[in-house]
């Protein structure tokens, strides 16, 4: 059997002497166990491909996510944060996702004011069956993070 070894994605810039590893952002996904987590699970079952940039933190409901949690993620070096909640009107706790929406809006404003950039954070509504929605969200945030560059707060990148 042919042995396969994982290779980091390399980009050649200006000849063989200059091989630079492409910036792989770190995306933190704060997601609801009832919907987006199930969608992420389904994406795996369906073997959908998405960047290995995302780290998932499972919440009982996006209503539990506080602004402090989001800011802490950035403080610890996340390049982008995506919050994934149930579609509007389908929250198991009636309005947890709506509260999360408001908190995300507040945190985006704060991130903009601190100079890190509000676009590093986004709220998505992804139902349990919407595996493609989860993949799209990860792709979207990865693209944004790549465009905006690394979060300079991440001291111990690795």
């Amino acid at each position: 059997m042919e042995q396969q070894t994982a290779q980091p994605e390399m980009t050649v810039i200006g000849g063989v002497d200059e091989i630079v590893e492409e910036f792989q952002p770190k995306i933190e996904a704060m997601i609801c166990t009832y919907c987006t987590y199930a969608a992420a699970d389904l994406a795996g079952s369906q073997r959908l491909q998405y960047p290995p940039t995302v780290k998932i933190v499972k919440y009982p409901c996006t209503g539990r996510i506080s602004v402090a949690h989001i800011l802490k993620a950035f403080e610890l070096g996340a390049d982008a944060v995506l919050v994934g909640g149930c579609e509007v009107g389908t929250c198991h706790f009636i309005e947890g996702n709506l509260r999360a929406t408001e908190r995300v809006a507040y945190a985006k404003k704060l991130l903009e004011e601190t100079g890190l950039g509000g676009d590093r954070l986004e709220m998505f509504y992804i139902s349990a069956s919407d595996s493609h929605g989860f993949v799209n969200a990860v792709n979207e945030m990865t693209d944004r993070a790549k465009k905006m560059g690394p979060n300079f707060l991440g001291q111990a990148r690795g």
Partner: peptide, 11 residues
């Protein structure tokens, strides 16, 4: 306090 302190650290 946690939110504001975190935002100040980021800024």
């Amino acid at each position: 306090v946690a939110e504001l302190a975190s935002a100040i650290r980021v800024a």
